[in-house]
């Protein structure tokens, strides 16, 4: 009896390991945290981009409107690519676009907006990148669709045609 238990359990263990590795293979190895979704938006204090006045986040994100929080910087190339989509979205009536200017110089950022037009309804400053961390962001660009103080959708990397359509659908 004892001699049978050992081989059988060995084979079962090896098979289980096989199944787990097999399943593991199908998981994406690019890490995208799910925890960002359906979470309350963080509370923070930051300077406004133009006036350098200090704002609280509550003052900006009010109740039941849709907001698109976009982290951008003039030195980030993908930000240029997504800019036309932001401009497109800025025509949406029920959506406000809030920018978070990440580790940027005011002069460069202003030039960037003058050159490509300004889609933002309001811009915060994040000179040392710590506010982006409050949002659980990895870098630039990154966007969060907000509704009723909750994060509805998180887009890591530039917005593209697909995510544009998705956002439009969500805010309907």
């Amino acid at each position: 009896m004892r001699t049978k238990i050992f081989p059988i359990s060995l084979i079962i263990i090896v098979s289980v390991i096989f199944v787990i590795f097999y399943k593991g293979l199908q998981n994406s190895n690019v890490y995208e945290p799910q925890i960002g979704n359906q979470k309350n938006i963080p509370v923070f204090i930051a300077k406004a981009f133009e006036t350098e006045e200090i704002f609280k986040s509550e003052d900006i994100f009010e109740g039941d409107k849709f907001y698109l929080m976009n982290i951008w910087s003039s030195w980030c190339a993908p930000c240029r690519d997504e800019h036309k989509f932001l401009l497109n979205l800025s025509n949406q009536k029920n959506l406000k676009i809030i920018g978070l200017n990440y580790k940027d110089k005011k002069k460069n950022a202003t030039n960037f907006l003058n050159e490509l037009n300004n889609p933002y309804d309001f811009i915060f400053n994040d000179t040392d990148g710590t506010i982006a961390i409050e949002w659980g962001a990895y870098g630039v660009p990154e966007s969060f669709l907000l509704h009723k103080n909750k994060i509805v959708k998180k887009i890591i990397g530039p917005i593209d045609q697909n995510s544009l359509l998705e956002i439009k659908e969500l805010i309907q």
């Binding site: 890490y31 580790k103 040392d128 990148g129 710590t130 982006a132 961390i133 990895y138 870098g139």
Partner: peptide, 22 residues
């Protein structure tokens, strides 16, 4: 998180620099 296989202390990426400040 963005450099794979390095600690924040050892990395000089933007993300790591911000985290160190934080």
């Amino acid at each position: 998180l963005i450099c794979q296989g390095q600690s924040v202390h050892d990395s000089d990426s933007e993300f790591a620099i911000s985290l160190k400040t934080l």
